[in-house]
């Protein structure tokens, strides 16, 4: 193939690939554009592609006139709290499942896989009753506990495959050097597993940040409501649907994810190649 032909093929491929990428990203772009249009431009027929005038009024209203910041704080606590609880429990559990032998170990691992099958709707009412019985109804704690139902099996499963990939000799060598099992765990296994742990933590945090159903049923007060249910409850009502504010809220709900994503993307994809896709 001649050099110019190759060049134009490359050019065409880039054009094609970027068209596909932009089509995929279009809804996100539209969300952003809608959120900075004045409300009067929202209801134009036909809609204008670019805003005639840029306004941050909707963001200001969200931040100052609505409980958006409370919801944001709740969501942050939820994502952080769930991740912490789940990662600590799952790291210990996965280590135990991979490196120790005791009766029932394999069956336990299968059970973990089985809990994957449980639809959230099955657990939501018994969980709600449990929380009410413990006096935790309507608290962030109840949601953190509820979120472990789907996050823990997932995290355990991911971490187990990460840890399986760590060579056994490393730990054996540390043991020969006189380290106890826990010392070996802390000094050898944990550092090796760190990329996997970070990746698992990210997935857990994202799951918790985005959850809707449990938040809908378990929490009914603004003091503990996260963004997902809070935003809908606040802006979709029987007297108005605030599209501008909804889009501004959507943008702001996504910003923390973009930040996390930008910084930790390599762990995410690398974590996947190492762990998630091995049985």
């Amino acid at each position: 193939m001649s050099a110019p032909a190759r060049k134009s093929r490359r050019y065409l491929f880039n054009l094609f690939a970027w068209t596909v990428v932009l089509v995929i990203a279009f809804p996100l772009l539209w969300m952003l554009l809608t959120s900075i249009k004045p409300q009067s431009e929202l209801f134009l027929i036909p809609p204008a592609l670019l805003p005639g005038e840029i306004t941050f009024e909707h963001y200001r209203r969200l931040l100052t006139e609505t409980p958006f910041l409370t919801y944001l704080k709740n969501s942050a606590w939820l994502a952080g709290g769930t991740t912490l609880v789940v990662i600590v429990i799952a790291t210990l559990g996965a280590h135990s499942l991979v490196r120790f032998s005791y009766p029932g170990r394999e069956r336990l691992a299968t059970l973990v896989l089985f809990t994957y099958l449980l639809p959230s709707v099955v657990l939501v009412i018994p969980l709600y009753l449990l929380m009410a019985g413990l006096g935790l109804a309507n608290t962030l704690t109840s949601l953190i506990i509820a979120y472990t139902t789907f996050a823990l099996p997932y995290a355990l499963w991911l971490l187990r495959s990460f840890m399986k990939a760590i060579p056994e000799d490393l730990e054996s060598a540390a043991l020969v050097d006189g380290a106890s099992r826990m010392q070996a765990f802390v000094d050898v296994i944990l550092p090796q597993a760190m990329p996997g742990i970070i990746s698992t933590a990210m997935f857990t945090a994202i799951l918790a940040w985005n959850e809707y159903l449990y938040a809908l049923v378990l929490v009914n007060s603004d003091a503990a409501r996260p963004l997902t249910t809070g935003v809908i409850n606040m802006l979709v009502t029987s007297f108005n649907i605030e599209w501008s504010l909804l889009m501004a809220a959507s943008v702001m709900m996504s910003v923390p994810l973009i930040v996390v994503f930008a910084f930790l993307q390599r762990y995410l994809t690398r974590g996947f190649s190492a762990g998630a896709i091995k049985g």
């Binding site: 990428v21 932009l22 995929i24 990203a25 809804p27 996100l28 539209w30 969300m31 809608t34 929202l42 209801f43 134009l44 027929i45 809609p47 994202i206 940040w209 985005n210 809707y212 963004l227 997902t228 249910t229 935003v231 809908i232 599209w243 909804l246 889009m247 959507s250 709900m253 996504s254 994810l257 973009i258 994503f261 930008a262 993307q265």
Partner: peptide, 27 residues
């Protein structure tokens, strides 16, 4: 890559809102 992967990390609530706005009959 970031642009393509992003829908997966987006909250379902956000994804649905955006699509309902895209699908809106009048606007």
């Amino acid at each position: 890559r970031s642009l393509v992967l992003f829908p997966y990390f987006l909250s379902t609530v956000v994804a649905v809102l955006v699509w309902r706005w895209l699908f809106n009959d009048l606007y």
